[in-house]
Design a protein around this nucleic acid. Structure first.
Length: 580
DNA sequence: GCCGTTTTCGGCCCGACTGTTTTCAGTCG
Protein backbone atom coordinates (compact mmCIF):
# COMPACT_ATOMS: atom_id res chain seq x y z
CA UNK A 1 0.00 0.00 0.00
CA UNK A 2 1.33 3.39 -0.96
CA UNK A 3 1.40 5.78 2.00
CA UNK A 4 -0.52 9.02 1.51
CA UNK A 5 1.55 12.01 0.53
CA UNK A 6 1.76 14.49 3.39
CA UNK A 7 4.25 17.24 2.67
CA UNK A 8 6.21 19.45 5.05
CA UNK A 9 3.80 22.36 4.67
CA UNK A 10 0.86 20.19 5.71
CA UNK A 11 2.69 18.80 8.73
CA UNK A 12 3.73 22.31 9.76
CA UNK A 13 0.18 23.61 9.40
CA UNK A 14 -1.24 20.85 11.58
CA UNK A 15 1.40 21.55 14.25
CA UNK A 16 0.60 25.27 14.13
CA UNK A 17 -3.11 24.59 14.48
CA UNK A 18 -2.43 22.34 17.47
CA UNK A 19 -0.38 25.14 19.01
CA UNK A 20 -3.28 27.57 18.66
CA UNK A 21 -5.85 25.07 19.92
CA UNK A 22 -3.72 24.38 23.01
CA UNK A 23 -3.60 28.11 23.70
CA UNK A 24 -7.38 28.27 23.33
CA UNK A 25 -7.61 25.50 25.89
CA UNK A 26 -5.49 27.56 28.24
CA UNK A 27 -2.69 25.01 28.29
CA UNK A 28 0.84 25.74 29.43
CA UNK A 29 2.21 28.21 26.90
CA UNK A 30 5.48 26.34 26.62
CA UNK A 31 3.69 23.24 25.54
CA UNK A 32 1.96 25.22 22.83
CA UNK A 33 5.24 26.80 21.82
CA UNK A 34 6.82 23.38 21.44
CA UNK A 35 4.35 22.61 18.63
CA UNK A 36 5.02 25.97 17.01
CA UNK A 37 8.77 25.39 17.11
CA UNK A 38 8.22 21.90 15.73
CA UNK A 39 6.40 23.48 12.78
CA UNK A 40 9.35 25.84 12.20
CA UNK A 41 11.73 22.92 12.34
CA UNK A 42 9.82 20.86 9.77
CA UNK A 43 9.44 23.81 7.39
CA UNK A 44 13.14 24.59 7.63
CA UNK A 45 14.24 21.06 6.76
CA UNK A 46 16.64 20.83 3.87
CA UNK A 47 16.16 17.08 3.66
CA UNK A 48 13.16 15.02 2.64
CA UNK A 49 10.58 14.27 5.29
CA UNK A 50 9.80 10.73 4.08
CA UNK A 51 13.14 9.08 4.88
CA UNK A 52 13.38 10.88 8.25
CA UNK A 53 10.07 9.36 9.25
CA UNK A 54 10.73 5.94 7.74
CA UNK A 55 14.08 5.63 9.48
CA UNK A 56 12.80 6.96 12.81
CA UNK A 57 15.23 9.87 12.80
CA UNK A 58 12.73 12.64 13.57
CA UNK A 59 13.82 12.77 17.20
CA UNK A 60 17.34 13.64 16.15
CA UNK A 61 16.04 17.07 15.12
CA UNK A 62 16.39 19.71 17.84
CA UNK A 63 12.95 20.70 19.10
CA UNK A 64 11.37 17.40 18.11
CA UNK A 65 10.97 15.01 21.01
CA UNK A 66 9.20 11.68 21.45
CA UNK A 67 5.67 13.16 21.47
CA UNK A 68 6.02 15.23 18.32
CA UNK A 69 7.93 12.51 16.53
CA UNK A 70 5.17 10.01 17.20
CA UNK A 71 2.42 12.37 16.08
CA UNK A 72 4.27 13.47 12.93
CA UNK A 73 5.00 9.85 12.07
CA UNK A 74 1.32 8.99 12.38
CA UNK A 75 0.38 11.91 10.13
CA UNK A 76 2.94 11.13 7.46
CA UNK A 77 2.32 7.39 7.34
CA UNK A 78 -1.48 7.38 7.66
CA UNK A 79 -2.47 10.86 6.50
CA UNK A 80 -4.22 11.48 9.84
CA UNK A 81 -3.36 12.54 13.35
CA UNK A 82 -5.73 11.28 16.02
CA UNK A 83 -4.60 13.79 18.62
CA UNK A 84 -5.23 16.71 16.26
CA UNK A 85 -8.63 15.46 15.22
CA UNK A 86 -9.74 15.01 18.83
CA UNK A 87 -8.45 18.41 19.81
CA UNK A 88 -10.04 20.12 16.83
CA UNK A 89 -13.41 18.52 17.52
CA UNK A 90 -13.66 20.39 20.83
CA UNK A 91 -14.06 23.75 19.10
CA UNK A 92 -16.08 25.16 16.21
CA UNK A 93 -13.95 25.36 13.05
CA UNK A 94 -14.17 29.15 12.86
CA UNK A 95 -12.30 29.76 16.13
CA UNK A 96 -8.86 29.40 14.56
CA UNK A 97 -9.78 32.04 12.00
CA UNK A 98 -10.79 34.44 14.79
CA UNK A 99 -7.23 34.41 16.05
CA UNK A 100 -6.01 35.84 12.77
CA UNK A 101 -7.81 39.10 13.53
CA UNK A 102 -5.55 41.89 14.80
CA UNK A 103 -5.53 42.35 18.59
CA UNK A 104 -7.42 39.10 19.03
CA UNK A 105 -5.50 36.30 20.69
CA UNK A 106 -6.30 33.01 22.38
CA UNK A 107 -7.54 34.50 25.65
CA UNK A 108 -10.00 36.83 24.01
CA UNK A 109 -11.22 34.16 21.62
CA UNK A 110 -11.76 31.82 24.57
CA UNK A 111 -13.77 34.49 26.40
CA UNK A 112 -15.85 35.31 23.32
CA UNK A 113 -16.57 31.63 22.82
CA UNK A 114 -17.38 30.81 26.45
CA UNK A 115 -19.40 33.92 27.26
CA UNK A 116 -21.17 34.66 23.99
CA UNK A 117 -20.84 31.43 22.00
CA UNK A 118 -19.01 33.27 19.24
CA UNK A 119 -17.31 30.81 16.90
CA UNK A 120 -16.81 32.68 13.64
CA UNK A 121 -15.79 36.06 12.23
CA UNK A 122 -19.38 36.65 11.12
CA UNK A 123 -20.76 35.96 14.60
CA UNK A 124 -18.18 38.27 16.14
CA UNK A 125 -19.08 41.05 13.72
CA UNK A 126 -22.76 40.73 14.57
CA UNK A 127 -22.11 40.69 18.32
CA UNK A 128 -20.04 43.87 18.00
CA UNK A 129 -22.79 45.59 16.02
CA UNK A 130 -25.33 44.61 18.66
CA UNK A 131 -23.10 46.02 21.41
CA UNK A 132 -22.73 42.71 23.22
CA UNK A 133 -18.94 42.51 23.10
CA UNK A 134 -18.31 45.73 25.01
CA UNK A 135 -20.22 44.35 28.01
CA UNK A 136 -17.75 41.52 28.49
CA UNK A 137 -15.17 41.73 31.26
CA UNK A 138 -11.90 42.91 29.79
CA UNK A 139 -13.56 44.42 26.74
CA UNK A 140 -14.96 47.91 26.32
CA UNK A 141 -16.24 50.45 23.86
CA UNK A 142 -12.85 50.93 22.23
CA UNK A 143 -12.10 47.22 21.98
CA UNK A 144 -15.41 46.63 20.27
CA UNK A 145 -14.81 49.39 17.71
CA UNK A 146 -11.28 48.16 17.13
CA UNK A 147 -12.49 44.62 16.50
CA UNK A 148 -14.94 45.85 13.84
CA UNK A 149 -12.13 47.80 12.21
CA UNK A 150 -9.89 44.75 12.39
CA UNK A 151 -12.52 42.59 10.68
CA UNK A 152 -12.71 45.06 7.79
CA UNK A 153 -8.93 45.09 7.44
CA UNK A 154 -8.69 41.33 7.68
CA UNK A 155 -11.22 40.84 4.93
CA UNK A 156 -9.51 43.34 2.69
CA UNK A 157 -6.02 41.93 3.08
CA UNK A 158 -7.04 38.31 3.76
CA UNK A 159 -3.93 38.07 5.85
CA UNK A 160 -1.82 37.80 2.72
CA UNK A 161 1.83 38.49 2.96
CA UNK A 162 3.34 40.77 0.36
CA UNK A 163 6.14 40.11 -2.07
CA UNK A 164 9.49 41.40 -0.89
CA UNK A 165 9.93 42.97 -4.31
CA UNK A 166 6.83 45.12 -3.81
CA UNK A 167 7.63 46.13 -0.23
CA UNK A 168 11.37 46.80 -0.31
CA UNK A 169 11.19 50.00 -2.41
CA UNK A 170 8.54 51.47 -0.07
CA UNK A 171 10.55 50.42 2.99
CA UNK A 172 13.74 51.97 1.64
CA UNK A 173 11.93 55.21 0.87
CA UNK A 174 10.64 55.45 4.43
CA UNK A 175 14.07 54.58 5.80
CA UNK A 176 15.53 57.51 3.86
CA UNK A 177 12.91 59.82 5.35
CA UNK A 178 13.69 58.58 8.87
CA UNK A 179 17.41 59.02 8.26
CA UNK A 180 16.80 62.61 7.20
CA UNK A 181 14.75 63.49 10.29
CA UNK A 182 16.25 65.72 13.03
CA UNK A 183 18.67 64.14 15.47
CA UNK A 184 18.90 60.67 13.94
CA UNK A 185 22.22 58.96 14.63
CA UNK A 186 21.74 55.53 13.05
CA UNK A 187 18.80 53.91 11.24
CA UNK A 188 18.19 50.58 9.53
CA UNK A 189 15.47 48.34 8.23
CA UNK A 190 14.78 45.32 10.45
CA UNK A 191 12.46 42.35 10.47
CA UNK A 192 11.81 39.96 7.62
CA UNK A 193 12.55 42.73 5.11
CA UNK A 194 16.12 42.92 6.40
CA UNK A 195 16.33 39.13 6.38
CA UNK A 196 15.10 39.29 2.77
CA UNK A 197 12.30 36.81 3.28
CA UNK A 198 10.40 35.93 0.09
CA UNK A 199 7.25 37.51 1.42
CA UNK A 200 6.82 39.90 4.30
CA UNK A 201 3.93 40.92 6.50
CA UNK A 202 5.12 44.37 7.57
CA UNK A 203 8.10 46.73 7.70
CA UNK A 204 10.28 47.40 10.75
CA UNK A 205 12.54 50.41 11.02
CA UNK A 206 14.95 50.91 13.92
CA UNK A 207 16.62 54.24 14.61
CA UNK A 208 18.69 55.87 17.33
CA UNK A 209 18.35 59.46 18.50
CA UNK A 210 18.57 61.38 21.77
CA UNK A 211 15.05 62.68 21.28
CA UNK A 212 12.70 60.20 19.58
CA UNK A 213 9.85 62.68 19.14
CA UNK A 214 10.83 64.30 15.81
CA UNK A 215 11.84 60.93 14.35
CA UNK A 216 8.50 59.34 15.22
CA UNK A 217 6.76 62.39 13.76
CA UNK A 218 8.71 61.98 10.54
CA UNK A 219 7.15 58.57 9.98
CA UNK A 220 3.69 59.60 11.17
CA UNK A 221 3.62 62.44 8.63
CA UNK A 222 5.21 60.55 5.72
CA UNK A 223 3.48 60.80 2.37
CA UNK A 224 1.43 57.69 1.68
CA UNK A 225 0.51 57.07 5.33
CA UNK A 226 -3.19 56.22 5.60
CA UNK A 227 -3.54 55.97 9.39
CA UNK A 228 -1.37 56.23 12.47
CA UNK A 229 -2.18 53.05 14.37
CA UNK A 230 -0.30 53.94 17.51
CA UNK A 231 2.34 56.34 18.74
CA UNK A 232 4.14 56.27 22.07
CA UNK A 233 7.42 57.57 23.50
CA UNK A 234 9.63 55.19 21.55
CA UNK A 235 7.42 53.55 18.95
CA UNK A 236 5.16 54.56 16.10
CA UNK A 237 3.06 52.28 13.89
CA UNK A 238 1.39 53.41 10.69
CA UNK A 239 -0.55 51.80 7.89
CA UNK A 240 0.34 52.83 4.37
CA UNK A 241 -2.27 53.48 1.69
CA UNK A 242 -0.44 51.14 -0.66
CA UNK A 243 -1.39 47.55 0.06
CA UNK A 244 -2.45 48.09 3.70
CA UNK A 245 1.22 47.79 4.55
CA UNK A 246 1.99 48.28 8.25
CA UNK A 247 5.22 50.00 9.23
CA UNK A 248 6.63 49.98 12.77
CA UNK A 249 9.34 52.41 13.83
CA UNK A 250 11.29 52.18 17.08
CA UNK A 251 13.62 54.91 18.23
CA UNK A 252 16.14 54.30 21.02
CA UNK A 253 19.27 55.79 22.56
CA UNK A 254 22.27 55.05 20.35
CA UNK A 255 23.89 52.80 22.98
CA UNK A 256 20.92 50.45 22.54
CA UNK A 257 20.81 50.60 18.73
CA UNK A 258 22.74 47.41 18.02
CA UNK A 259 20.77 45.22 20.42
CA UNK A 260 17.48 46.75 19.29
CA UNK A 261 18.33 46.28 15.62
CA UNK A 262 19.27 42.71 16.32
CA UNK A 263 16.11 42.10 18.32
CA UNK A 264 13.81 43.51 15.67
CA UNK A 265 15.59 41.76 12.83
CA UNK A 266 14.79 38.32 14.24
CA UNK A 267 13.92 35.73 13.38
CA UNK A 268 12.22 34.86 16.59
CA UNK A 269 13.66 31.36 16.50
CA UNK A 270 17.21 32.65 15.98
CA UNK A 271 16.68 35.06 18.82
CA UNK A 272 15.52 32.51 21.29
CA UNK A 273 18.63 30.46 20.59
CA UNK A 274 20.87 33.45 21.27
CA UNK A 275 19.07 34.42 24.44
CA UNK A 276 19.49 30.88 25.72
CA UNK A 277 23.20 31.01 24.89
CA UNK A 278 23.40 34.31 26.75
CA UNK A 279 21.57 32.81 29.68
CA UNK A 280 24.17 30.04 29.93
CA UNK A 281 26.84 32.72 30.16
CA UNK A 282 25.03 34.74 32.82
CA UNK A 283 23.85 37.38 30.35
CA UNK A 284 20.34 38.62 29.71
CA UNK A 285 19.83 39.75 26.13
CA UNK A 286 17.01 42.08 25.22
CA UNK A 287 16.44 44.99 22.87
CA UNK A 288 17.62 47.20 25.70
CA UNK A 289 21.07 45.69 25.77
CA UNK A 290 23.00 42.86 27.32
CA UNK A 291 22.98 42.76 31.11
CA UNK A 292 24.94 40.58 33.48
CA UNK A 293 22.92 38.84 36.14
CA UNK A 294 24.17 41.40 38.68
CA UNK A 295 22.54 44.12 36.56
CA UNK A 296 25.62 45.63 34.97
CA UNK A 297 25.14 46.55 31.36
CA UNK A 298 27.68 45.47 28.77
CA UNK A 299 28.42 47.87 25.93
CA UNK A 300 27.42 46.53 22.51
CA UNK A 301 28.72 48.76 19.73
CA UNK A 302 27.25 46.81 16.84
CA UNK A 303 25.76 43.43 15.98
CA UNK A 304 29.21 41.90 15.49
CA UNK A 305 30.00 42.75 19.11
CA UNK A 306 26.84 40.99 20.25
CA UNK A 307 27.85 37.77 18.48
CA UNK A 308 31.39 38.14 19.82
CA UNK A 309 30.01 38.23 23.39
CA UNK A 310 28.48 34.81 22.68
CA UNK A 311 31.74 33.46 21.19
CA UNK A 312 30.13 33.17 17.76
CA UNK A 313 30.84 34.33 14.25
CA UNK A 314 28.70 37.19 13.00
CA UNK A 315 25.55 35.79 11.38
CA UNK A 316 24.31 37.78 8.35
CA UNK A 317 20.61 38.71 8.62
CA UNK A 318 19.60 36.46 5.70
CA UNK A 319 20.79 33.40 7.66
CA UNK A 320 19.04 34.11 10.96
CA UNK A 321 16.38 31.41 10.83
CA UNK A 322 17.67 28.80 13.31
CA UNK A 323 18.39 26.46 10.43
CA UNK A 324 21.80 25.42 11.64
CA UNK A 325 23.45 28.84 11.50
CA UNK A 326 23.76 29.05 15.29
CA UNK A 327 25.66 25.78 15.50
CA UNK A 328 27.83 26.68 12.51
CA UNK A 329 28.64 30.14 13.90
CA UNK A 330 29.62 28.67 17.27
CA UNK A 331 31.90 26.16 15.55
CA UNK A 332 33.41 28.84 13.32
CA UNK A 333 32.07 27.05 10.25
CA UNK A 334 29.72 29.68 8.89
CA UNK A 335 30.72 30.72 5.35
CA UNK A 336 32.28 34.18 5.46
CA UNK A 337 32.20 34.72 1.71
CA UNK A 338 28.48 34.59 0.93
CA UNK A 339 27.85 35.98 -2.54
CA UNK A 340 27.13 39.72 -2.75
CA UNK A 341 25.79 42.05 -5.43
CA UNK A 342 29.29 43.47 -5.82
CA UNK A 343 30.59 40.01 -6.68
CA UNK A 344 28.39 39.73 -9.79
CA UNK A 345 30.20 40.51 -13.03
CA UNK A 346 27.40 39.52 -15.36
CA UNK A 347 23.64 39.18 -15.46
CA UNK A 348 21.97 36.02 -16.68
CA UNK A 349 18.60 35.62 -18.44
CA UNK A 350 17.34 38.68 -20.31
CA UNK A 351 14.74 39.17 -23.02
CA UNK A 352 14.50 42.00 -25.52
CA UNK A 353 12.03 43.22 -28.13
CA UNK A 354 13.13 40.22 -30.20
CA UNK A 355 10.74 38.11 -28.08
CA UNK A 356 8.58 39.34 -25.19
CA UNK A 357 10.87 42.01 -23.74
CA UNK A 358 10.06 45.73 -23.71
CA UNK A 359 13.50 47.17 -24.48
CA UNK A 360 15.86 46.80 -27.43
CA UNK A 361 19.13 44.94 -27.23
CA UNK A 362 21.03 48.21 -27.18
CA UNK A 363 18.88 49.60 -24.36
CA UNK A 364 19.48 46.45 -22.35
CA UNK A 365 23.22 46.65 -22.95
CA UNK A 366 23.35 50.28 -21.85
CA UNK A 367 21.32 49.52 -18.72
CA UNK A 368 23.62 46.62 -17.81
CA UNK A 369 26.70 48.78 -18.30
CA UNK A 370 25.19 51.53 -16.15
CA UNK A 371 24.93 49.00 -13.32
CA UNK A 372 28.62 48.15 -13.69
CA UNK A 373 27.96 44.74 -15.25
CA UNK A 374 30.45 43.35 -17.74
CA UNK A 375 28.09 41.04 -19.62
CA UNK A 376 24.46 40.12 -20.07
CA UNK A 377 23.15 36.85 -21.47
CA UNK A 378 20.44 37.46 -24.05
CA UNK A 379 18.09 34.52 -23.81
CA UNK A 380 14.89 34.98 -25.80
CA UNK A 381 12.13 32.41 -25.93
CA UNK A 382 12.32 29.57 -28.43
CA UNK A 383 9.92 28.62 -31.19
CA UNK A 384 7.40 26.64 -29.11
CA UNK A 385 6.72 29.65 -26.87
CA UNK A 386 4.41 31.29 -29.39
CA UNK A 387 2.58 33.30 -26.71
CA UNK A 388 5.89 34.93 -25.77
CA UNK A 389 7.08 35.72 -29.27
CA UNK A 390 9.41 32.73 -29.44
CA UNK A 391 12.03 32.92 -32.19
CA UNK A 392 12.22 30.72 -35.23
CA UNK A 393 15.75 29.69 -36.11
CA UNK A 394 16.16 32.21 -38.94
CA UNK A 395 15.05 35.04 -36.61
CA UNK A 396 17.57 33.84 -34.03
CA UNK A 397 20.34 34.02 -36.60
CA UNK A 398 19.37 37.56 -37.58
CA UNK A 399 19.42 38.48 -33.89
CA UNK A 400 23.06 37.37 -33.66
CA UNK A 401 23.94 39.98 -36.28
CA UNK A 402 22.30 42.68 -34.19
CA UNK A 403 24.07 41.45 -31.06
CA UNK A 404 27.37 41.79 -32.92
CA UNK A 405 26.44 45.35 -33.93
CA UNK A 406 25.46 46.32 -30.36
CA UNK A 407 28.61 44.75 -28.93
CA UNK A 408 30.66 46.89 -31.34
CA UNK A 409 28.64 50.01 -30.56
CA UNK A 410 28.53 49.71 -26.75
CA UNK A 411 32.00 49.13 -25.34
CA UNK A 412 32.48 47.97 -21.75
CA UNK A 413 29.67 45.44 -21.75
CA UNK A 414 29.17 42.28 -23.78
CA UNK A 415 25.92 40.70 -24.83
CA UNK A 416 26.23 36.91 -24.90
CA UNK A 417 24.28 34.96 -27.50
CA UNK A 418 21.88 32.68 -25.73
CA UNK A 419 18.42 31.21 -25.66
CA UNK A 420 15.78 30.25 -23.12
CA UNK A 421 14.74 27.11 -24.91
CA UNK A 422 11.54 25.33 -23.98
CA UNK A 423 11.69 21.88 -22.48
CA UNK A 424 9.08 19.99 -24.48
CA UNK A 425 6.75 17.43 -22.97
CA UNK A 426 9.15 14.61 -23.85
CA UNK A 427 12.10 16.31 -22.21
CA UNK A 428 13.57 17.19 -25.63
CA UNK A 429 14.61 20.79 -26.22
CA UNK A 430 12.77 23.03 -28.68
CA UNK A 431 15.75 23.54 -31.05
CA UNK A 432 17.84 21.11 -32.97
CA UNK A 433 21.27 20.28 -31.48
CA UNK A 434 22.87 21.91 -34.54
CA UNK A 435 21.32 25.25 -33.48
CA UNK A 436 21.99 24.85 -29.77
CA UNK A 437 25.68 24.10 -30.29
CA UNK A 438 26.17 27.51 -31.91
CA UNK A 439 24.89 29.35 -28.84
CA UNK A 440 27.07 30.69 -26.04
CA UNK A 441 24.45 30.23 -23.31
CA UNK A 442 21.60 27.72 -23.33
CA UNK A 443 18.98 27.99 -20.59
CA UNK A 444 16.20 25.41 -20.71
CA UNK A 445 12.88 26.04 -18.98
CA UNK A 446 9.37 24.65 -18.80
CA UNK A 447 6.60 27.01 -19.85
CA UNK A 448 3.78 24.75 -20.97
CA UNK A 449 2.20 21.48 -19.89
CA UNK A 450 2.51 22.05 -16.14
CA UNK A 451 -0.09 19.50 -15.16
CA UNK A 452 1.93 16.32 -15.49
CA UNK A 453 2.31 13.99 -12.55
CA UNK A 454 5.45 13.85 -10.43
CA UNK A 455 6.98 10.86 -12.20
CA UNK A 456 6.39 12.29 -15.67
CA UNK A 457 7.60 15.76 -14.76
CA UNK A 458 10.73 14.48 -13.02
CA UNK A 459 11.54 12.28 -16.02
CA UNK A 460 10.96 15.23 -18.36
CA UNK A 461 13.48 17.41 -16.52
CA UNK A 462 16.04 14.63 -16.05
CA UNK A 463 15.86 13.94 -19.79
CA UNK A 464 16.46 17.60 -20.56
CA UNK A 465 19.51 17.64 -18.28
CA UNK A 466 21.03 14.89 -20.41
CA UNK A 467 21.15 17.16 -23.46
CA UNK A 468 24.87 17.91 -23.92
CA UNK A 469 24.18 21.45 -25.18
CA UNK A 470 22.22 22.51 -22.12
CA UNK A 471 24.08 24.83 -19.71
CA UNK A 472 21.49 26.12 -17.25
CA UNK A 473 18.19 24.77 -15.95
CA UNK A 474 15.85 27.80 -15.80
CA UNK A 475 13.30 28.51 -13.01
CA UNK A 476 13.30 24.79 -12.18
CA UNK A 477 10.16 24.48 -10.07
CA UNK A 478 7.95 26.89 -12.02
CA UNK A 479 6.32 28.35 -8.96
CA UNK A 480 4.81 31.82 -8.82
CA UNK A 481 4.59 33.10 -5.27
CA UNK A 482 1.00 33.38 -4.07
CA UNK A 483 -0.42 32.39 -7.44
CA UNK A 484 0.98 29.10 -8.74
CA UNK A 485 2.27 26.02 -6.98
CA UNK A 486 5.56 24.48 -8.13
CA UNK A 487 5.31 21.64 -10.65
CA UNK A 488 5.15 18.24 -9.01
CA UNK A 489 8.85 17.45 -9.21
CA UNK A 490 11.34 15.46 -7.15
CA UNK A 491 13.86 18.25 -6.74
CA UNK A 492 16.36 16.07 -4.87
CA UNK A 493 16.69 13.89 -7.97
CA UNK A 494 16.87 16.90 -10.26
CA UNK A 495 19.64 18.54 -8.22
CA UNK A 496 21.60 15.30 -7.92
CA UNK A 497 21.36 14.79 -11.67
CA UNK A 498 22.36 18.38 -12.37
CA UNK A 499 25.44 17.84 -10.20
CA UNK A 500 26.29 14.63 -12.07
CA UNK A 501 25.74 16.15 -15.52
CA UNK A 502 27.51 19.42 -14.74
CA UNK A 503 24.43 21.51 -15.54
CA UNK A 504 24.07 24.82 -13.69
CA UNK A 505 20.82 25.67 -11.93
CA UNK A 506 19.22 29.10 -12.06
CA UNK A 507 18.38 31.18 -9.02
CA UNK A 508 15.76 33.31 -10.73
CA UNK A 509 15.59 36.71 -9.02
CA UNK A 510 12.21 37.80 -10.30
CA UNK A 511 10.39 38.64 -7.03
CA UNK A 512 7.34 36.53 -7.86
CA UNK A 513 9.51 33.52 -8.77
CA UNK A 514 12.63 33.27 -6.58
CA UNK A 515 13.14 29.89 -8.19
CA UNK A 516 14.96 27.84 -6.99
CA UNK A 517 14.10 28.81 -3.44
CA UNK A 518 16.65 29.17 -0.66
CA UNK A 519 16.13 25.65 0.75
CA UNK A 520 17.02 24.15 -2.62
CA UNK A 521 19.96 26.50 -3.03
CA UNK A 522 21.36 25.11 0.18
CA UNK A 523 20.84 21.58 -1.04
CA UNK A 524 22.47 22.48 -4.37
CA UNK A 525 25.49 23.97 -2.61
CA UNK A 526 25.87 20.80 -0.54
CA UNK A 527 25.73 18.70 -3.72
CA UNK A 528 28.24 20.90 -5.53
CA UNK A 529 25.72 22.02 -8.17
CA UNK A 530 26.85 25.04 -10.17
CA UNK A 531 24.56 28.05 -9.73
CA UNK A 532 23.77 31.24 -11.63
CA UNK A 533 21.95 34.27 -10.24
CA UNK A 534 19.55 35.62 -12.84
CA UNK A 535 17.31 38.62 -13.35
CA UNK A 536 14.80 37.14 -15.84
CA UNK A 537 14.60 40.66 -17.26
CA UNK A 538 11.81 41.65 -19.62
CA UNK A 539 12.66 45.35 -19.40
CA UNK A 540 15.77 47.21 -18.35
CA UNK A 541 14.46 47.98 -14.85
CA UNK A 542 14.29 44.22 -14.23
CA UNK A 543 18.07 44.05 -14.05
CA UNK A 544 17.48 45.13 -10.44
CA UNK A 545 15.96 41.66 -9.88
CA UNK A 546 19.53 40.45 -9.46
CA UNK A 547 19.43 41.77 -5.89
CA UNK A 548 16.59 39.38 -5.04
CA UNK A 549 18.45 36.52 -6.69
CA UNK A 550 21.51 37.34 -4.60
CA UNK A 551 19.36 37.50 -1.47
CA UNK A 552 17.95 34.03 -2.24
CA UNK A 553 21.45 32.70 -2.90
CA UNK A 554 22.65 34.09 0.44
CA UNK A 555 19.64 32.65 2.27
CA UNK A 556 20.73 29.32 0.78
CA UNK A 557 24.31 29.80 2.10
CA UNK A 558 25.77 30.17 -1.42
CA UNK A 559 29.28 31.57 -1.54
CA UNK A 560 30.87 33.63 -4.28
CA UNK A 561 32.59 30.54 -5.65
CA UNK A 562 29.28 28.71 -6.00
CA UNK A 563 27.85 31.30 -8.41
CA UNK A 564 29.22 31.23 -11.96
CA UNK A 565 28.31 34.78 -12.95
CA UNK A 566 30.69 36.14 -10.35
CA UNK A 567 33.37 35.31 -12.93
CA UNK A 568 34.48 37.19 -16.04
CA UNK A 569 32.60 36.51 -19.29
CA UNK A 570 35.31 34.18 -20.60
CA UNK A 571 35.57 32.21 -17.38
CA UNK A 572 31.78 32.13 -17.07
CA UNK A 573 31.45 30.59 -20.54
CA UNK A 574 34.20 28.08 -19.78
CA UNK A 575 32.60 27.14 -16.47
CA UNK A 576 29.21 26.58 -18.15
CA UNK A 577 30.87 23.97 -20.38
CA UNK A 578 33.00 22.31 -17.72
CA UNK A 579 31.98 18.69 -17.20
CA UNK A 580 29.43 18.82 -20.02
C1' DG B 1 6.37 19.41 25.01
C1' DC B 2 11.49 19.85 25.01
C1' DC B 3 15.81 19.93 27.17
C1' DG B 4 20.36 19.07 29.97
C1' DT B 5 28.46 21.93 31.97
C1' DT B 6 21.66 24.06 36.55
C1' DT B 7 20.89 16.81 33.40
C1' DT B 8 15.04 13.30 34.58
C1' DC B 9 12.83 18.18 37.26
C1' DG B 10 12.04 22.74 36.71
C1' DG B 11 12.82 25.92 33.75
C1' DC B 12 11.51 27.73 29.18
C1' DC B 13 13.02 35.47 25.81
C1' DC B 14 11.34 39.75 27.14
C1' DG B 15 9.50 44.39 26.93
C1' DA B 16 6.16 48.12 24.72
C1' DC B 17 1.70 49.45 24.05
C1' DT B 18 -3.32 49.47 24.65
C1' DG B 19 -7.40 49.35 27.02
C1' DT B 20 -9.64 48.53 30.97
C1' DT B 21 -7.83 48.28 34.77
C1' DT B 22 -7.04 51.51 40.09
C1' DT B 23 -2.40 47.40 39.56
C1' DC B 24 -3.02 44.41 35.33
C1' DA B 25 -4.17 41.24 31.29
C1' DG B 26 -3.77 40.54 26.61
C1' DT B 27 -1.48 41.02 22.34
C1' DC B 28 2.34 41.76 19.54
C1' DG B 29 6.83 41.33 17.73
Amino acid sequence: MTPPIVDKATVAQVLRDISLLLQLQGENGFRSRAYDMGADRILGLTQELGPLVAEGRLESLPGIGPALAEKITELVTTGRMTYFEELRAKFPPGLLELMKLPDIGPRKVATLWKELGIGSVEALEQACREGRVKQLKGFGEKSQAKILEGITLYRRARGERKLLGDVLPIAEGLLERVRASPGVIRASLGGSVRRRAETVADVDIIASAADPGPVLDALATSPGVATVIGKGDSKCSVRMEAGDLQVDLRVLPDEDFATALHHFTGSKAHHIRLRNLGHERGMKISEWGVHRDDGTKLPVADEAALYALLDMQFVPPELREDNGEVEAARAGKLPTDLVTMEDLQGAVHAHSTWSDGRNTLEEMALAARALGLKYLTITEHSEAAIYAGGLKVEALERQWEEIDRVNAAVPGVRLLKGIEVDILESGALDYDDKVLEKLEVVIASIHVRHSMDEDQMTKRVLTALDNPHLHILGHPTGRLLQSREPYPLRMDEVLEHAARRGVAVEINGKPARLDIKAEYVRKAVQLGVKLVVSCDAHRREDLANLAFGVATARRGWARKQDVLNTQSAERFLTALRAGR
